[in-house]
Design a protein around this nucleic acid. Structure first.
Lengths: 148, 148
DNA sequence: GCGATATAATTGCGATTGCAACTCATCGGG
DNA sequence: CCCGATGAGTTGCAATCGCAATTATATCGC
Protein backbone atom coordinates (compact mmCIF):
# COMPACT_ATOMS: atom_id res chain seq x y z
CA UNK A 1 0.00 0.00 0.00
CA UNK A 2 1.66 3.11 -1.21
CA UNK A 3 0.63 6.48 0.16
CA UNK A 4 1.97 8.66 -2.58
CA UNK A 5 2.54 12.16 -1.37
CA UNK A 6 0.66 14.76 -3.41
CA UNK A 7 3.16 16.02 -5.98
CA UNK A 8 2.35 19.67 -5.67
CA UNK A 9 2.87 19.75 -1.92
CA UNK A 10 6.06 17.79 -2.24
CA UNK A 11 7.35 20.21 -4.86
CA UNK A 12 6.28 23.13 -2.72
CA UNK A 13 8.22 22.00 0.33
CA UNK A 14 11.33 20.91 -1.54
CA UNK A 15 11.54 24.00 -3.71
CA UNK A 16 11.11 26.21 -0.66
CA UNK A 17 14.05 24.58 1.06
CA UNK A 18 16.25 24.69 -2.03
CA UNK A 19 15.48 28.37 -2.69
CA UNK A 20 15.96 29.52 0.89
CA UNK A 21 19.18 27.59 1.09
CA UNK A 22 20.51 29.27 -2.05
CA UNK A 23 19.42 32.74 -0.93
CA UNK A 24 21.16 32.23 2.41
CA UNK A 25 24.25 31.03 0.63
CA UNK A 26 24.44 34.08 -1.60
CA UNK A 27 23.78 36.51 1.23
CA UNK A 28 26.42 34.85 3.35
CA UNK A 29 28.92 34.90 0.48
CA UNK A 30 28.38 38.64 0.24
CA UNK A 31 29.08 39.01 3.96
CA UNK A 32 25.44 39.84 4.69
CA UNK A 33 23.20 38.54 7.48
CA UNK A 34 20.51 35.91 7.12
CA UNK A 35 17.30 36.19 5.18
CA UNK A 36 15.25 36.54 8.38
CA UNK A 37 16.89 39.89 9.01
CA UNK A 38 15.86 41.20 5.63
CA UNK A 39 12.33 40.13 6.26
CA UNK A 40 12.14 41.85 9.62
CA UNK A 41 13.83 45.03 8.40
CA UNK A 42 11.44 45.29 5.50
CA UNK A 43 8.49 44.70 7.77
CA UNK A 44 9.60 47.57 9.96
CA UNK A 45 10.67 49.93 7.19
CA UNK A 46 7.42 49.53 5.29
CA UNK A 47 5.39 50.70 8.29
CA UNK A 48 4.32 54.32 8.80
CA UNK A 49 7.45 56.37 9.62
CA UNK A 50 9.48 53.17 9.49
CA UNK A 51 7.75 51.93 12.61
CA UNK A 52 5.68 48.88 13.54
CA UNK A 53 4.16 47.35 16.60
CA UNK A 54 5.68 44.06 17.63
CA UNK A 55 2.59 41.92 17.31
CA UNK A 56 1.63 43.47 14.01
CA UNK A 57 5.08 42.62 12.71
CA UNK A 58 4.93 39.04 14.00
CA UNK A 59 1.61 38.57 12.21
CA UNK A 60 2.88 40.05 8.96
CA UNK A 61 5.99 37.88 8.98
CA UNK A 62 4.10 34.80 10.15
CA UNK A 63 6.56 34.09 12.94
CA UNK A 64 5.99 33.53 16.65
CA UNK A 65 6.11 36.42 19.06
CA UNK A 66 9.02 35.07 21.03
CA UNK A 67 11.04 34.59 17.86
CA UNK A 68 10.39 38.18 16.94
CA UNK A 69 11.36 39.44 20.38
CA UNK A 70 14.75 37.84 20.02
CA UNK A 71 15.24 38.74 16.39
CA UNK A 72 14.56 42.37 17.29
CA UNK A 73 16.95 42.02 20.24
CA UNK A 74 19.70 41.16 17.81
CA UNK A 75 18.79 43.86 15.31
CA UNK A 76 18.71 46.42 18.10
CA UNK A 77 22.08 45.31 19.42
CA UNK A 78 23.60 45.88 16.00
CA UNK A 79 21.97 49.29 15.72
CA UNK A 80 19.58 48.50 12.86
CA UNK A 81 16.39 49.24 14.79
CA UNK A 82 15.33 51.00 17.99
CA UNK A 83 12.61 49.99 20.45
CA UNK A 84 10.10 52.18 22.27
CA UNK A 85 7.08 51.59 24.48
CA UNK A 86 3.78 53.31 23.88
CA UNK A 87 2.47 55.96 26.30
CA UNK A 88 -1.14 55.06 25.33
CA UNK A 89 -1.00 51.32 25.80
CA UNK A 90 1.63 50.22 28.27
CA UNK A 91 1.70 46.74 26.83
CA UNK A 92 2.59 47.83 23.32
CA UNK A 93 6.15 47.95 22.00
CA UNK A 94 7.18 49.73 18.81
CA UNK A 95 10.16 49.04 16.61
CA UNK A 96 11.67 51.70 14.34
CA UNK A 97 14.28 51.20 11.65
CA UNK A 98 17.47 53.30 11.76
CA UNK A 99 19.45 54.72 8.85
CA UNK A 100 21.93 51.89 9.22
CA UNK A 101 19.00 49.50 9.08
CA UNK A 102 17.70 51.04 5.87
CA UNK A 103 21.15 50.87 4.33
CA UNK A 104 21.56 47.24 5.26
CA UNK A 105 18.16 46.31 3.91
CA UNK A 106 18.94 48.02 0.62
CA UNK A 107 22.20 46.12 0.27
CA UNK A 108 20.47 42.83 1.05
CA UNK A 109 17.66 43.64 -1.34
CA UNK A 110 19.99 43.73 -4.34
CA UNK A 111 21.14 40.18 -3.88
CA UNK A 112 17.85 38.86 -2.60
CA UNK A 113 15.72 40.31 -5.36
CA UNK A 114 18.11 39.16 -8.08
CA UNK A 115 18.12 35.63 -6.72
CA UNK A 116 14.36 35.35 -6.40
CA UNK A 117 13.79 36.75 -9.87
CA UNK A 118 16.42 34.56 -11.48
CA UNK A 119 15.54 31.26 -9.84
CA UNK A 120 11.88 31.54 -8.90
CA UNK A 121 9.81 34.22 -10.59
CA UNK A 122 11.25 33.43 -14.01
CA UNK A 123 9.43 30.08 -13.86
CA UNK A 124 5.99 31.78 -13.99
CA UNK A 125 4.41 34.06 -16.57
CA UNK A 126 2.51 37.16 -15.45
CA UNK A 127 -0.88 35.49 -15.27
CA UNK A 128 0.48 32.47 -13.44
CA UNK A 129 2.16 34.77 -10.94
CA UNK A 130 -1.17 36.36 -10.08
CA UNK A 131 -3.11 33.09 -10.00
CA UNK A 132 -0.60 31.16 -7.94
CA UNK A 133 -0.10 34.05 -5.59
CA UNK A 134 -3.86 34.20 -5.00
CA UNK A 135 -4.10 30.46 -4.41
CA UNK A 136 -1.23 30.56 -1.91
CA UNK A 137 -2.82 33.48 -0.11
CA UNK A 138 -6.05 31.49 0.19
CA UNK A 139 -4.12 28.54 1.59
CA UNK A 140 -2.34 30.75 4.12
CA UNK A 141 -5.65 32.25 5.17
CA UNK A 142 -7.23 28.84 5.54
CA UNK A 143 -4.31 27.66 7.67
CA UNK A 144 -4.47 30.69 9.93
CA UNK A 145 -8.21 30.50 10.38
CA UNK A 146 -7.90 26.86 11.18
CA UNK A 147 -5.25 27.49 13.83
CA UNK A 148 -7.43 29.99 15.49
CA UNK B 1 11.95 54.69 -3.28
CA UNK B 2 9.93 51.62 -2.58
CA UNK B 3 11.32 48.17 -3.33
CA UNK B 4 8.13 46.24 -3.49
CA UNK B 5 8.71 42.60 -2.82
CA UNK B 6 7.45 40.38 -5.64
CA UNK B 7 3.98 39.28 -4.59
CA UNK B 8 4.33 35.68 -5.62
CA UNK B 9 7.50 35.13 -3.63
CA UNK B 10 6.02 36.88 -0.66
CA UNK B 11 2.92 34.66 -0.84
CA UNK B 12 5.09 31.61 -1.27
CA UNK B 13 7.12 32.24 1.87
CA UNK B 14 4.20 33.30 4.04
CA UNK B 15 1.92 30.47 2.99
CA UNK B 16 4.70 27.97 3.59
CA UNK B 17 5.15 29.17 7.16
CA UNK B 18 1.42 29.24 7.86
CA UNK B 19 0.87 25.74 6.49
CA UNK B 20 3.84 24.15 8.24
CA UNK B 21 2.80 25.80 11.46
CA UNK B 22 -0.71 24.40 11.18
CA UNK B 23 0.51 20.92 10.25
CA UNK B 24 2.85 20.90 13.26
CA UNK B 25 0.01 22.06 15.46
CA UNK B 26 -2.30 19.27 14.35
CA UNK B 27 0.37 16.60 14.65
CA UNK B 28 1.31 17.81 18.09
CA UNK B 29 -2.36 17.89 19.17
CA UNK B 30 -2.61 14.25 18.14
CA UNK B 31 0.45 13.41 20.26
CA UNK B 32 2.57 12.76 17.17
CA UNK B 33 6.13 13.91 16.45
CA UNK B 34 7.12 16.77 14.17
CA UNK B 35 6.68 16.95 10.44
CA UNK B 36 10.42 16.40 9.85
CA UNK B 37 10.06 12.88 11.20
CA UNK B 38 7.33 12.05 8.74
CA UNK B 39 9.45 13.29 5.91
CA UNK B 40 12.46 11.24 6.92
CA UNK B 41 10.42 8.09 7.58
CA UNK B 42 8.78 8.35 4.20
CA UNK B 43 12.13 8.91 2.53
CA UNK B 44 13.45 5.72 4.09
CA UNK B 45 10.31 3.61 3.64
CA UNK B 46 9.98 4.48 -0.04
CA UNK B 47 13.46 3.16 -0.78
CA UNK B 48 14.13 -0.41 -1.96
CA UNK B 49 13.44 -2.79 0.97
CA UNK B 50 12.66 0.23 3.14
CA UNK B 51 16.33 1.24 3.00
CA UNK B 52 18.26 4.32 1.85
CA UNK B 53 21.77 5.60 1.91
CA UNK B 54 22.28 8.63 4.10
CA UNK B 55 23.44 11.03 1.42
CA UNK B 56 20.73 9.93 -0.97
CA UNK B 57 18.19 10.66 1.72
CA UNK B 58 19.67 14.06 2.51
CA UNK B 59 19.47 14.99 -1.16
CA UNK B 60 15.89 13.79 -1.51
CA UNK B 61 14.76 15.71 1.57
CA UNK B 62 16.83 18.77 0.68
CA UNK B 63 18.36 18.96 4.14
CA UNK B 64 21.98 19.19 5.23
CA UNK B 65 23.96 16.05 5.98
CA UNK B 66 24.59 16.94 9.58
CA UNK B 67 20.90 17.59 10.16
CA UNK B 68 20.10 14.19 8.78
CA UNK B 69 22.73 12.49 10.93
CA UNK B 70 21.09 13.84 14.04
CA UNK B 71 17.53 13.33 12.87
CA UNK B 72 18.37 9.68 12.20
CA UNK B 73 20.07 9.50 15.63
CA UNK B 74 16.76 10.41 17.21
CA UNK B 75 14.69 8.09 15.02
CA UNK B 76 17.09 5.25 15.79
CA UNK B 77 16.94 5.95 19.52
CA UNK B 78 13.16 5.64 19.41
CA UNK B 79 13.36 2.42 17.42
CA UNK B 80 11.82 3.71 14.19
CA UNK B 81 14.86 3.00 12.01
CA UNK B 82 18.09 1.00 12.16
CA UNK B 83 21.53 1.92 10.83
CA UNK B 84 24.08 -0.26 9.05
CA UNK B 85 27.39 0.31 7.30
CA UNK B 86 28.14 -1.13 3.89
CA UNK B 87 30.74 -3.88 3.47
CA UNK B 88 31.42 -2.70 -0.12
CA UNK B 89 32.06 0.96 0.53
CA UNK B 90 33.28 1.62 4.05
CA UNK B 91 32.12 5.22 3.89
CA UNK B 92 28.50 4.45 3.17
CA UNK B 93 25.79 4.25 5.82
CA UNK B 94 22.35 2.76 5.28
CA UNK B 95 19.13 3.48 7.15
CA UNK B 96 16.26 0.99 7.27
CA UNK B 97 12.76 1.58 8.58
CA UNK B 98 11.39 -0.74 11.27
CA UNK B 99 7.82 -1.99 11.70
CA UNK B 100 7.31 0.57 14.43
CA UNK B 101 8.56 3.21 12.00
CA UNK B 102 6.09 2.11 9.33
CA UNK B 103 3.27 2.20 11.84
CA UNK B 104 4.19 5.68 13.02
CA UNK B 105 4.45 7.00 9.50
CA UNK B 106 1.02 5.61 8.66
CA UNK B 107 -0.53 7.29 11.70
CA UNK B 108 1.13 10.59 10.84
CA UNK B 109 0.08 10.28 7.22
CA UNK B 110 -3.61 10.35 8.10
CA UNK B 111 -3.42 13.74 9.73
CA UNK B 112 -0.79 15.15 7.47
CA UNK B 113 -2.52 14.19 4.22
CA UNK B 114 -5.88 15.46 5.39
CA UNK B 115 -4.41 18.80 6.37
CA UNK B 116 -2.52 19.33 3.13
CA UNK B 117 -5.53 18.39 1.04
CA UNK B 118 -7.91 20.54 3.01
CA UNK B 119 -5.84 23.68 3.26
CA UNK B 120 -3.48 23.58 0.31
CA UNK B 121 -4.33 21.27 -2.57
CA UNK B 122 -7.96 22.34 -2.58
CA UNK B 123 -6.82 25.77 -3.78
CA UNK B 124 -5.63 24.36 -7.13
CA UNK B 125 -7.47 22.53 -9.89
CA UNK B 126 -5.89 19.46 -11.50
CA UNK B 127 -4.19 21.35 -14.30
CA UNK B 128 -2.88 24.03 -11.97
CA UNK B 129 -1.48 21.34 -9.69
CA UNK B 130 0.57 19.93 -12.55
CA UNK B 131 1.70 23.30 -13.89
CA UNK B 132 2.66 24.78 -10.55
CA UNK B 133 4.36 21.60 -9.48
CA UNK B 134 6.47 21.67 -12.65
CA UNK B 135 7.36 25.32 -12.20
CA UNK B 136 8.42 24.71 -8.60
CA UNK B 137 10.51 21.73 -9.64
CA UNK B 138 12.27 23.90 -12.19
CA UNK B 139 12.95 26.52 -9.54
CA UNK B 140 14.34 23.91 -7.16
CA UNK B 141 16.56 22.54 -9.88
CA UNK B 142 17.81 26.01 -10.77
CA UNK B 143 18.60 26.71 -7.13
CA UNK B 144 20.48 23.46 -6.68
CA UNK B 145 22.48 23.84 -9.86
CA UNK B 146 23.35 27.35 -8.83
CA UNK B 147 24.56 26.19 -5.40
CA UNK B 148 26.69 23.54 -6.99
C1' DG C 1 -14.35 50.68 41.46
C1' DC C 2 -12.75 45.77 41.51
C1' DG C 3 -11.72 41.07 40.63
C1' DA C 4 -11.48 37.86 36.68
C1' DT C 5 -9.98 37.45 32.18
C1' DA C 6 -7.56 38.68 28.02
C1' DT C 7 -3.67 40.68 25.50
C1' DA C 8 1.32 42.09 24.65
C1' DA C 9 5.77 41.20 25.20
C1' DT C 10 9.37 38.81 27.26
C1' DT C 11 12.28 35.05 29.34
C1' DG C 12 14.25 30.37 31.28
C1' DC C 13 15.50 26.29 29.62
C1' DG C 14 15.82 22.25 26.90
C1' DA C 15 15.86 20.80 21.94
C1' DT C 16 17.45 21.69 17.37
C1' DT C 17 20.28 23.86 13.82
C1' DG C 18 24.48 25.62 11.38
C1' DC C 19 29.31 26.11 10.77
C1' DA C 20 33.69 24.39 10.72
C1' DA C 21 36.58 20.84 11.85
C1' DC C 22 37.48 15.95 12.02
C1' DT C 23 37.65 10.80 10.94
C1' DC C 24 37.76 7.22 7.81
C1' DA C 25 37.53 5.25 3.18
C1' DT C 26 38.08 5.40 -1.71
C1' DC C 27 40.08 7.16 -5.94
C1' DG C 28 43.53 8.80 -9.28
C1' DG C 29 47.95 9.86 -10.75
C1' DG C 30 52.91 9.06 -10.81
C1' DC D 1 52.51 0.99 -4.03
C1' DC D 2 51.79 5.43 -1.86
C1' DC D 3 50.48 10.22 -1.46
C1' DG D 4 47.30 13.92 -2.13
C1' DA D 5 42.59 14.88 -3.28
C1' DT D 6 37.80 13.85 -2.86
C1' DG D 7 33.69 11.90 -0.70
C1' DA D 8 30.59 10.20 3.25
C1' DG D 9 29.37 10.65 7.59
C1' DT D 10 29.80 12.51 12.12
C1' DT D 11 30.71 15.75 16.01
C1' DG D 12 31.99 20.07 19.14
C1' DC D 13 30.32 24.23 20.01
C1' DA D 14 27.86 28.43 19.52
C1' DA D 15 23.57 30.39 17.78
C1' DT D 16 18.71 29.94 17.39
C1' DC D 17 14.08 28.00 18.18
C1' DG D 18 9.92 26.27 20.71
C1' DC D 19 7.33 25.49 24.74
C1' DA D 20 5.69 26.82 28.93
C1' DA D 21 5.77 30.10 32.26
C1' DT D 22 6.16 35.18 33.81
C1' DT D 23 5.38 40.15 33.98
C1' DA D 24 2.82 44.04 33.05
C1' DT D 25 -1.12 46.31 31.35
C1' DA D 26 -5.86 46.76 29.65
C1' DT D 27 -10.73 45.46 29.42
C1' DC D 28 -15.09 43.46 30.76
C1' DG D 29 -18.98 42.29 33.75
C1' DC D 30 -20.97 43.31 37.77
Amino acid sequence: MVNKEPDLWFSFVRSHRALIREIERRLSNAGLPAYAWYDALWGVESGKDGTRRMHELADALVIERYSLTRLVDRLEQEGFVTRARSPDDGRAAYVTITDAGRALRARMWKIYEATVTELFLSQFDAKAQRDVSDALDRAALAARQSTQ
